[in-house]
Nucleic acid binder design. Sequence first.
RNA 1: GCGGCGAUGGUCUAGUGGUAGGACCUGAGCCUUCCAAGCUCAUGGCCCGGGUUCAAAUCCCGGUCGCCGCACCA
Length: 589
Amino acid sequence: MTDDTAADRLTELAKRRGFFFRSSEAYGGVSGFYVYGPEGATLKENLEDAWRDRFVRREGHMEIEAPNVMPEPVFEASGHLDGFDDMIVECPECGASHRADHIVEDNTDIEEAESIAITDIEEIVAENDVVCPSCGTELAGEPVEDFNLMFETTIGPGSSSPGYLRPETAQGIFVEFPRLKEYARGQLPFGVAQIGAAYRNEISPRKGLVRLREFAQAELEHFVDPETDDPDLESVADVEVTLYSEAQQDDEDGEPVELTVQEAVEAGVVGSDWVAYYLGVAQGWYERIGVDMDRFRFRQHRSGELAHYAADCWDAEADTSAPGADPDWIEITGFAYRGDYDLTKHGEYADDDFTIFKQYDDPITVERATVDPEMSYLGPEFGGDAAAVGEALEDLAERDRTAFDDDTVTVDVDGDEYAVPVEKTGFSIEEVTEAGEHVTPHVVEPSFGVDRLVYTVLAHTLERDDAGEDADEDRTVLTLPPELAPTTVAVFPLMDKDGLGERAGEVAERLRQAGFEVAEDASGSIGRRYRRQDEVGTPYCVTVDYDTLEDGTVTVRDRDTTAQARVPVDDLPGVVADLRAGETTIGDL
RNA sequence: GCGGCGAUGGUCUAGUGGUAGGACCUGAGCCUUCCAAGCUCAUGGCCCGGGUUCAAAUCCCGGUCGCCGCACCA
């Protein structure tokens, strides 16, 4: 079986049975936007619930829902307006597109070319005789096009207030940090989670659910004090993880290694205890939702591919190819230690306070150099620059109190030097008592791509076996964990006559009352109906037959083994619940 | 965005300058006492726009979408 047929089988099933399909096909379709059909929407919801259960509820974190649209200044602060902006230059000869900033960096001494204006980049390209990396044609004079990966919109009438669809859900959390820290009563650590849509106007999205322009993220921003907060590493110490470190990637013969979380931390393979902790937690969670852990690894980002905010980052990757085919690794989660980047940036750009006041165990007394400039002197002397000079003096006092040892002190304001007599600066050294300090929390961020997880789970649970009586006959079955299955139990009458259909309806209703997602089907042969449910991953099928009318028992059939057990209708809700929870199996009944 | 290839019922497909056929699925009926049985019937289709032509689903152009390669995926 080739890679193609595996993916094709999945997309065919997804379309036919309502898991996912391209949107707006009636109007020709649109690239990068998908619909979750009835089965897919429920599957995705169940997957998100499983995520909530593990990463919010069990961790004691909180969940919020922030808007999809946020105003421009948010993204100036976050760095997305610049950092998300690609400058593309096209080769007139071979037609290849290149990142203008990248080829400038490669051909000149310039670093961080990303932050240079487009017109300047065009000049630099011309002056340095930069050529096309693909074919060597001169690129001088070629236009450099701006391509921002964010969807832009306007807020309210007119264009004076630009807004953007968020390119990651994380900013919705960072921006609200001042209020969230109030909610957390100013105490670190605390975690804020969000499941929601994010938008990236990809140049060329492909591969269905794997690369979308609108996609769902489940993100956790865990705010910690880097000095005092430590993760509960012990709880995941023995979890085995497959790690593909940067060093192993750089080594030609490098292979991923299996280590316990504890070993990984001790050997320094994973630099951050926090990241290591979440790798351990996530490992167990992936297993729980049906990811095939033989086709899974954690891969460290190489230093070149680190995002603008990330200090260290590991991706969870799943291979969605068919066995035997070339591996097709897709990123399903990013684990980033974002440091204090985001909160610091928002603190600089926004009016609010993005720090936490950390109280000392005991107040401390420190000597502090302060100034109290005599503005009645500075004003007449320096005119409009007086205020700036005053601020410069304050900065200087904090930085270097020896500057005030002489009779005059000199400060620099925008390149101009100003000499001020020390006596006019109000310089003094005082003892002050400090109860604590403001610290900017660090952020640990596990960021899950929900759509890719849905895709991976489907790809890893879609199986074909020969459970049919006729050995030539393949059975298509999704071995979804019962927790995720869109339908938990299907109820069939063996025949749709002699009152069996009515009885089946009663049984189905009873299971619905008990809170289960129930399907009913009376059409076609019983075998056909089992197969229909197998295809959408329904773990249990209940069949009402003639014995049911006699003694009130039904058969329960297990999806994966096709084994059956006979159960009294009265016990059914409890039996299904136990089966779903894994507390019993069909064989035990 | 560029280049190559492609687009036919819900799905998978056959096919020709004279407006389409199959398989599966789905629905109805018959039959059937537990794993895609059988029979009868039915629903349903040539991506969009323009051009050439007596006639276009077929040929040409453009668009949209898909796949592959390049680039991109922070």
